[in-house]
Amino acid sequence: MAHELNFLFVNIVNGLVYGSFLLLTSLGLSLVFGLGRVVNFAHGAFYALGGYVLISVMRVGAGFWLALAVVPVVLTGIGLALEAGLIRRLRKRPEVDTLLATFGLSAMLVGGIEYLWGTSTTIVKPPLGFEGIVQVLSNDFPIYRFAAAGLSLLMAAGVLAIVQWTPLGLRIRAIADDAEMAEAIGVDRSRLLWQVFGYAAGLAGFAGALGAPIFAVHPEMGLSILIDSFLVVVLGGLGSLKGSTIGAAVVSVTKAVGGAYLADWSTALLFLIVASVLVARPTGIFATGRIA
């Protein structure tokens, strides 16, 4: 009995660590959808690019933490350029056009990664001082796992604080509430979506780089977290940051615990949970069409 409880505890902890990364990617996905009704299929590719940018910066001699700081800057730049060059041009067209365009963009980015960095998996060592393990209830956990989860949650809290308490966040919430009215009182929606798309790409890249020592780096690494992020956003309610926070915990723990007990059936369990929620609440747990 004690052994089984311990097994459950380990899986819940691992699930919550994954959930902290999932939260970062989901917040970006949710913000971009809430603001511009853009379903961004390239978000997973930004996550993967984050891991590869980290590797490249480290290869030129930078330490892990410096490389980690560079990643969101580079990915934000890439996100800003892609929004201005592609997404903005599709804004007045049906939403499905943007969805298809980001799907194609994702394939191109993953193809680009394979061309530039190859298809093999790269292991990234944890930074100095974080290579050890820590014991929790007689279980060994890598220190870096907790450090990365903590940093990830800190970033997510920062995003939520920006949305709730800054002028930028106020404009984001006004747009999500009534886009036309917000524009009529002076909010430049186009510029705001450009900024948020860039920041969301930066966040996804940061998550990919931060998770590199835990999950390793490979070209397809963004696909799995993209699917999970969509589940989080759909479960929590499209555009709802509060929903994304709860959804990330539900999806990650279900995946980890389900995976431990049900193996391949855990994915089916996850989809069953999401489908059940959608049957009861078709707009997700917290969907209001607003960002809060």
């Binding site: 106020l170 919430r173 006004a174 509430d177 009215m181 209001t288």
Partner: peptide, 10 residues
């Protein structure tokens, strides 16, 4: 068309 989810002050 007030922003229903925002406070009066916001």
């Amino acid at each position: 068309r007030v922003f229903a989810s925002l406070t009066v002050e916001e």
